[in-house]
Simulated scan of single mutants.
Amino acid sequence: MKPASRKSEIITTASQLFKEKGYNAVSMRDIAQTMGIKASSLYNHISGKQEILSTLILKVAREFTTGMQQVVEQDLSAVEKIEKVISFHIDITVTYSDALAALNNDWMHLADEELQQFITMRDDYEENVRKIIKKGIDKGEIEPRHPEVILFSILSTLRTLYLWYEKRGKLDENILKKDMVAVLLKGIVK
């Protein structure tokens, strides 16, 4: 297995610190201290906190965008598409748990161009889920509830999954996928 580059080590360390303390509370000196190196040597590999933040957030946002594009392109029912969205969201949560904290909590600190890229990807993502929900309602696959309530219920649960997942001892992904799909799509009432 190839060892991680120094830049990726810096990003990983910063990601963990951002999750623990928040972007504003972490300095380059904190990152260096956690890594056991001098702060000045960080700048040999990265321009600063802004580059770290944009790398973290945009990488995860692109993962969501790619996952959504794959779902949208498939010839599936609305319910099957929502199941796929839930499933790839769980995969991203498991893979990028620390980075999701920055994506959810610190995105507003991105520089102008990166901020616009992120907002566009997030808005497109939500619009795709909205369209899937509306199509499902129109075809009678989904109960005729307000699409925004359904959208909010699903996405707010998925967006905060990284917090819950770590506290619960990292459940088996397959069980998590099966049960989350069941609860979010079918509810809990027999």
Rank of each mutant, 00 (worst) to 15 (best):
L53Y: 08
L53W: 02
L53A: 06
S54L: 04
T55M: 12
T55L: 07
L56K: 04
L56G: 12
I57W: 13
I57F: 14
L58K: 07
K59E: 12
K59V: 05
K59L: 12
V60R: 05
A61R: 04
R62P: 08
E63P: 02
E63D: 07
E63C: 15
F64Y: 14
F64D: 03
T65D: 09
T65G: 04
T66M: 00
T66R: 02
G67H: 00
G67W: 00
M68D: 00
Q69C: 07
V71N: 01
V71F: 02
E73L: 15
D75A: 09
S77G: 05
S77N: 02
S77Q: 09
A78E: 00
A78K: 08
A78W: 04
I82M: 12
I82E: 06
I82C: 08
I82D: 07
E83C: 09
V85Q: 02
V85E: 01
V85H: 03
I86S: 08
I86E: 10
S87H: 13
I90W: 08
D91V: 00
D91C: 07
D91W: 06
D91A: 00
T93H: 06
V94M: 11
T95M: 01
S97N: 15
S97A: 11
D98V: 11
A99Y: 06
A101Q: 06
A101C: 09
A101K: 07
A102K: 02
A102D: 06
A102H: 01
L103Y: 11
L103W: 09
N104T: 09
N104V: 05
N104Y: 02
N104A: 09
D106W: 08
D106M: 10
D106N: 14
W107M: 14
W107Q: 13
M108A: 09
M108I: 10
M108T: 09
H109Y: 15
L110W: 13
L110E: 04
D112T: 10
D112G: 12
D112S: 15
D112K: 10
D112H: 03
E113Y: 12
E113H: 11
E114L: 02
L115N: 07
Q116D: 00
Q117I: 09
M121K: 02
D123M: 13
D123G: 03
Y125H: 11
E127Q: 10
E127K: 14
N128R: 06
N128C: 04
N128I: 00
R130M: 14
R130E: 07
R130F: 14
K131N: 12
K131D: 13
I132F: 06
I133W: 00
K134M: 12
K135V: 01
K135M: 02
G136H: 06
I137V: 13
I137D: 06
I137S: 03
K139E: 14
K139R: 08
